[in-house]
């Protein structure tokens, strides 16, 4: 199983980025192999609109089964849902702490209740 984290760095010690669509990078961690790869999100980060949608597409193509980030907008959520990716919110400072929290089952999968926001 693979799990994606939003981050501004390239290491496990790097900060967990609170933004999803405009996160700098995605760190995709393979729980079975204990290895990770880092995917640059520069192209989507620079999008005038639709950064969240395309970032979600990037995460989906990475083969991740779950995503841990600070927040995620309604459109991106829809893509992740369609791709079968579980979404977890966390406000811990670093990727490794978020990974620990995930392993210990401390993160709660986000529901869909407030994703159809009415402001975009």
């Amino acid at each position: 199983m693979k799990i994606a984290f939003t981050t501004s760095g390239s290491e496990l010690t790097a900060p967990l980025d609170q933004r999803f669509g405009r996160a700098f990078k995605f760190l995709v961690y393979d729980l079975e192999k204990d290895t990770f790869e880092v995917i640059d999100n520069k192209q989507n980060l620079d999008a005038a609109q639709g950064a969240g949608i395309q970032s979600a597409g990037t995460v989906a193509r990475s083969g991740a089964d779950a995503l841990v980030s600070g927040h995620c907008g309604p459109k991106a959520f829809r893509v992740l849902l369609a791709a079968g990716i579980k979404v977890f919110y966390s406000d811990v400072p670093t990727v490794s702490e978020a990974l620990d929290a995930y392993r210990q089952g401390k993160l709660i999968e986000s529901g869909t209740a407030d994703v159809e926001g009415h402001w975009e």
């Binding site: 609109q49 639709g50 949608i53 459109k75 829809r78």
Partner: peptide, 14 residues
């Protein structure tokens, strides 16, 4: 306009 996203299946449209 990033209104379409595709990840190997039928694309999702916004």
């Amino acid at each position: 306009y990033h209104a379409i996203v595709s990840f190997g299946t039928t694309p999702l449209i916004f």
